[in-house]
Design a protein around this nucleic acid. Sequence first.
DNA 1: TTTATTCATACTAAGTCAATAGGATTTGAC
DNA 2: GTCAAATCCTATTGACTTAGTATGAATAAA
Lengths: 143, 143
Amino acid sequence: MKISSKVECGIISLVDICIYSNNSVVTVINISARQNISAKYLEQILPQLRQADIIRSVKGSHGGYTLTRPAEKITLRDVINALDCTVLADYSAKEDSRIADAVSECLWSKMSAYLRNFTDSVTLRDIADRIAADSSAQPMYYI
Amino acid sequence: MKISSKVECGIISLVDICIYSNNSVVTVINISARQNISAKYLEQILPQLRQADIIRSVKGSHGGYTLTRPAEKITLRDVINALDCTVLADYSAKEDSRIADAVSECLWSKMSAYLRNFTDSVTLRDIADRIAADSSAQPMYYI
DNA sequence: TTTATTCATACTAAGTCAATAGGATTTGAC
DNA sequence: GTCAAATCCTATTGACTTAGTATGAATAAA
């Protein structure tokens, strides 16, 4: 499935914040360096996650980002909706016919609901734990 | 979920062929008139469905299209893959980091597999039957 | 030979997306 | 109070994708 770069980078950033914030904030520069994502691009993505109340920002010098709540309370659906609300939304065809209506109603809406169900079931904690599990075999280097 | 117009029109066309081919073929012109889709656009979509062995074409005068097999043997996955193979394919991030790799492997690939599972479970018959069910309340008019 | 159809390919206009750019604002440290 | 480090806001650009159109060739029935 094709994932937009924005959503992809958003998830990666959140996992990064989750792993690297030890009672402190994580800056755009930090994430950019660790994850090889342009800082300017992140500056566009992170405010959106803040507006969706997924992360909290501290402005000014020594500022940065932290999660607003425990990672197990942040779902994949939260993140996707914050960055691209069309992904999980119901879709309705513009073609005008009874068949088109039926396909919209009984197929696409069902498919969207099915996807939402999946994204509800995955939390940031699940992803971060998976990274940690990988790290036990292959040691993690903090930058 | 955002569905491409091509896939949408493809499904609609197949349902149309399924419903309106009574031991005969269905032409682009017929589908176009019934479903309000440009004939020229359909001429681009239907050959792709033929190449994927979902429909069979009869060329020349009195030509048209029929399904190659019973509707219950044609899955949503067959159709989507014929028209846009990126939808159900695994996606791998281009960002270069351990976290990005982990997200690709354990998140996006799982999500694609989940979607494939859904699309495997829905057949053209299911959709056509749904249309028929609607018609018992609201009579269907053949053109 | 005409007509009705599919087939193949090229084209275009509009829209979307990824990424960059520039500067404004906020805050801590000295 | 000044400087530096950070987020914030908004605009812009260039590349790519998509939807739909156009033109004409090939095929086959009547």
